[in-house]
């Protein structure tokens, strides 16, 4: 259902942009279709392989295992481990939140939890591989991931001091 709504929304936006281009620069259309087709064909194999790989990765990381690790460690070590697991946790909007919630019940600290959610948000390998590399290219992805790496640890430390 979510996919359907998203698809309709983004087709609406794309058609609006096309209509605008038609009015302002109709002669640019062939170039637009050429570029779009080229990009689409470039992404297609990456997206398919990325999604399948993401599915396999997800199956290899049992949730109970992550939850146990998140709640067992504390302090800086806990934050570092939590950041690492965040990186590995597969996408999907709620997987990491569900794991985080059960880890919290099992005794995980605020620092570890914030580090985990932040790392999962910023550098989740699965989303990065299946969407970002195909769509944005390696250069953008690499720059973004490298500059983001310290954030989960710093935010985790701040959270553990404040909470």
């Amino acid at each position: 259902m979510n996919i359907l709504i998203g698809t309709i929304l983004i087709w609406g936006a794309a058609l609006w942009a096309l209509a605008h281009l038609n009015r302002t620069a109709p002669e640019a259309r062939p170039e637009l279709y050429r570029r779009a087709t080229e990009t689409f064909l470039f992404m297609l194999p990456r997206l398919v392989v990325g999604l399948v790989g993401a599915g396999f990765l997800a199956a290899l990381l049992p949730e109970a295992f992550v939850q146990r690790w998140l709640s067992a460690q504390s302090g800086l070590q806990g934050i570092l481990i939590a950041s690492g697991f965040g990186l590995l946790t597969p996408g999907g909007p709620f997987v990491a939140f569900a794991i985080g919630a059960s880890a919290l019940k099992a005794g995980a600290g605020a620092g570890a939890l914030v580090a985990y959610i932040t790392a999962w948000s910023l550098v989740s390998m699965v989303r990065t591989l299946s969407y970002e590399v195909p769509l944005m290219g390696r250069q953008f992805t690499l720059a973004r991931v490298l500059i983001s790496l310290p954030a989960p640890i710093l935010l985790g430390l701040c959270a553990s001091l404040l909470f």
Binding site: I3, A13, A14, A17, L18, L21, L32, A36, T39, M43
Partner: peptide, 24 residues
């Protein structure tokens, strides 16, 4: 996951079209 990829294709196609058109 192959099914998911198939389901996502129309969305991705629109996304690519939008990105390309926005640039212009």
């Amino acid at each position: 996951d192959l099914g998911l990829a198939l389901l996502l294709l129309p969305k991705i196609a629109a996304g690519v079209l939008l990105a390309t058109a926005l640039a212009l």
